[in-house]
Structures are given as C-alpha cells and as structure tokens.
C-alpha cells in the first residue's frame, strides 16, 4: 500500500512536469535537425565517449569508434525530439565550458572537461532508476542517460568492447548454469 501511495505521488509530480513544459519548449523539441548539425559534433562526441569509457588495460570508446556508432544512431534511428535533446545537450556542455573556463570544450584540460561532464551528468535526472523511468515516460529521455546508453551500447557491441573489455563466447556449445566465478571474470558480452 505504501509503495502504491509513493508511486501515486510521483505520478502527480510527473503530471505537473508536463503542464509546466511550455509551448516554446515543445516547438524546440520538434523542429527539424540537419544531419550536418549532428555530424559537426563528431570531435566532441568522441572525447565525451572516451571520458565515459576510457582506455585502460582494455580498449576504450575511441578504439571502438563509438562516436561513429552514436552518430549513426542519432541520424538514422533517433526521433526528432531525441535529436533536438542531443544537439542541445552537447551545446549545454560546450556552453558550460566557455562560461566557466572561457574556452572551447575541446581545448579544456581533462580536469575541466570532467567537471563539465559531471555537471551535465548530475543534472541529468533523478538518482534512482524508478524515478528516471517515470520522468522519462512523461518528459522523454534526457540527454545524458540517452547519450551514455548509446556510448555503452556502441562500445559493448563493438569488436574491441565485446572481445577485449568483456567476455565474448561466439558459439558456447554448452550451458553451465552455476559455476564459480573465475578471478577477474569479465561479464558476458551477449545474452
């Protein structure tokens, strides 16, 4: 019963959120986005993706060409709303960098870039999945979770990501239901 009340209260908030979205916002989210507008962001997308999944002892996002995956999805598969959120989300990071550090994001130090990305990430949504789920239902996926999900997807489906950062088993041949975890066991790349 408590859980139900809890959910109800969130739904009310969600509803308020919807009514507070102005017509201006809606128009902003539905205007056409040129492919070029998205492609122009390639360099910064590559940097941001590498910051999310950096090269360590295994390949990082740049090694896996994740930026091209993200661009391809944004151009071919994303809705107009998602494209608008994407372009304005990147713009927000760029604006943060120029306001705060007085220079282009790409010219910032790694520390400065991290601060900019952290700012965006932490203002992206609620801290729990259930709240985000409800928020997204009413307002659409915000920029950072969408971007991060695409970076993760692009990386984990890529050959370097799947075969080096994760454990890839092309044709398992058998199923073992419960086996002891091996030391340094990586997660399976595919389900």
């Amino acid at each position: 019963m408590k859980r139900r009340d809890y959910l109800k209260s969130i739904l009310v908030l969600g509803g308020l959120g919807v009514t507070s979205v102005s017509v201006f916002e809606w128009v902003k989210l539905t205007r056409h986005v040129d492919t070029k507008q998205i492609l122009d962001k390639r360099p910064i997308i590559a940097e941001l993706a590498e910051m999310i999944i950096p090269k360590t002892d295994t390949p990082g996002a740049k090694d896996a060409n994740v930026h091209d995956y993200v661009l391809n999805i944004m151009i071919n598969c994303a809705s107009v709303k998602e494209q608008n959120r994407f372009v304005s989300g990147i713009q927000e990071i760029e604006d943060y960098a120029s306001d705060k550090f007085g220079k282009d994001f790409l010219k910032c130090s790694l520390k400065e870039r991290s601060e900019a990305l952290k700012h965006i990430a932490e203002h992206a949504g609620f801290s729990t999945p259930i709240l985000n789920k409800i928020n997204e239902r009413y307002l659409g996926t915000p920029f950072y979770p969408k971007f991060k999900a695409l970076v993760v997807e692009g990386f984990c489906l890529s050959k370097p990501g799947a075969t080096q950062a994760l454990a890839y088993d092309y044709v398992p041949g058998s199923y073992e239901a419960c086996i002891p975890l091996k030391p340094l066991q990586k997660a399976w790349a595919t389900k």
Partner: peptide, 14 residues
C-alpha cells in the same frame, strides 16, 4: 546513473 570514467567502466564490464 550519473557515473563515467574508469570506475564506471570497471562496473560495466564485471
């Protein structure tokens, strides 16, 4: 949510 970087990658791949 909200995380990125080496720690995030470590969590993601285990």
């Amino acid at each position: 949510v909200n995380e990125f970087g080496e720690d995030f990658k470590a969590k993601l791949t285990t």
